[in-house]
Amino acid sequence: MTAIDYLQFVLAPQVVNGLALGVAVVLVALGLTIIFGMLDVINMSHGEFYAIGAYAALALAAAGVGFWFLLVLVPVLMIPLGMAAERLLIRPVFGSKDRHVTTLLVTFGLGLIVEDVLKIIFGANTQRPPTPIPGASEMFGIILPNYRLFLILVGAAIVLGVAYVVYRTRLGAMVRAAAFDRNMAASLGVPVSLVYAGTFAFGVGLAGLAGVLLAPIYSVFPTMGRDFILLAFTVVIVGGMGSIWGAVVAGLLLTQVQALASLVISPVWTDPIVFGTMVAFLVFRPQGLFGRLGHA
């Protein structure tokens, strides 16, 4: 293989494909970092909410709803689900002393139940919605499917939108205030319990949106929630809990590490590298790249 061949056929596509995967990971991690970082809930069922979003898109598409409308409809439908999960499962254990352990176990159990319910309703076989934007584009000899290109752009738009809401609006300020000190926020008139439920539901809605967007690429099956959950948690920890920019930087960085490392070593070893990075961060820089412990 010549150097030009290597650059054009191997290195450059690897970086671009890594970028598309990175955007997918960031999309899943976005909802997780909000729930984890702002509400201090370790939501192990986040992957299953992502799966519910994908299945909802599949079912609604079969009923004749167009893809573009699904991008709005599915996240909106996920919000009452998220509210209900927060009220019925998270809140009863939220006040306990071992909040991390109890929320982790409750959401883990919820994830297992959702997985089986999806299997009972939709069957165990893989399904796949058609790609909404077919075809591929070629730039400098690098071929990228149009839908992945679209995903990169939409992903960027979603991140900017969420960052704007969290950091630049009054609503976002209320969420951050409630996360920082719930008693102080409550005494200043912030409806803390509503804000908590709403924030959880917002994170769940984002997971559902990721499900709609990624289903055409990664296909839909009951255990699909496990696909991204570990990588998403890694991204949240490395980026800094609750930090949106942290999730973006860590998501893109880790997937690039994975993509480039798989050129030199066996792809099986890229997972230990990624999770090793997470362990290193937990030991040496627990606040992550952009996180400040205690600040959302």
Partner: peptide, 20 residues
């Protein structure tokens, strides 16, 4: 030849080698 981990999400990372 390449061996991908079981349950791989994305096979695109091998496409460069296949293309080349």
């Amino acid at each position: 030849e390449v061996f991908a981990p079981l349950d791989s999400k994305d096979y695109t990372q091998y496409f460069g080698q296949i293309r080349a």
